[in-house]
Amino acid sequence: MAEFVAFVLLLAVAAYACGGGTDYGAGFWDLTAGGTERGKRPRWLIDHAMAPVWEVNNVWLIFVLILMWTGFPVLFQTVFTAMWLPFALAALGMVLRGAGFALRKPSRRLARRRLYGAVFAIASLLTPFCLGAAVGAIASGRIAPGTEASAHAWATPASLLFGLLTVAGTALLGAVFLTADAKRFDAPDLVGYFRLRALAALVAVALTAVGVLLVTRGDAPHVWHGLTHGAGLALAIVSAVFFVATGLLVLRGQTHWARFSAVGIVGAAVFAWGLAQRPYLIPTSLSVADAAGDSQTLLWLSVVSLVALLFVLPAVFFLYWLDTHGELEPLTDADLRPTGPLRGDAVDGD
């Protein structure tokens, strides 16, 4: 049962990495889009592409947290105690990001839009970096139950490189999805714009991934062993294949398919990491079995997760489908003004 819940946890982490990652990536390209005039069109696209789905993507994170504290209370306690600062910063970044994004759209004045936009963009960088750094600390076994909050735990090369890899990964997802969105929104100039950025992000991912593998070898022997054997190795290879495929698809301009392969890279990489850690949640101090909560709770948590799978997944996919088919559009100003005089009575005079 604990194994199953751990698997669901990994699944939710992967989903958040892909869904949330795409959003953070969009924020990353917002940050780098340049001055107000130059960045106007990319920013317009980013706003429109992200709007309907970012809240759903955020719920994946909530789901991860809940699975952690209900299924593996000790894991939750350990991680949040030892890595207080990165998580506090990530939370702060998340608030600023969401608020900045939500407020930028309905604001009209340029100075305000700029302020909210800057807040949104900077926070989009901070949050994934901090979360990635936390993963690095876990993978390298820097923390263990009882570790106090200290920079020791996460101010390490492993954390730094995991953080950078996470940022690069989000940038890649963001650029690939935005390329496809540019096609969908009929903005050919932006297709080229984001394609170039997708390629740059691919290079960045490759470089940081090599860095991560190097420190893993030294700092995280357990994970390194997992990545070079069995299922971990297989998934790492899958991720690499997707990587090559994404490169080819982006180069050929088949952006529709590139989205799937980009998700494949990130998803397979997360699973490779998770499986490489087996049987530990935190190598090598906290195993799945040791951290597991009460067996009845785990049973119910599995039921809840299955219900989620049955109800929520179709709903979420329906939303993504509607979104990518252009069925969802924000209300425009014209929709929010009266179509007739307001002062009289109802047209059909009730």
Partner: peptide, 29 residues
């Protein structure tokens, strides 16, 4: 966490459905 957390589990998928439906409602006009 494992004693009282399950309520939050229910909350999580309620939030999922809510976020999906509200996105469809707000952007479906």
């Amino acid at each position: 966490g494992d004693v009282f957390g399950i309520g939050f589990g229910v909350e999580a998928w309620a939030f999922f459905l809510e976020a999906v439906l509200i996105a469809i409602y707000l952007y479906g006009w």
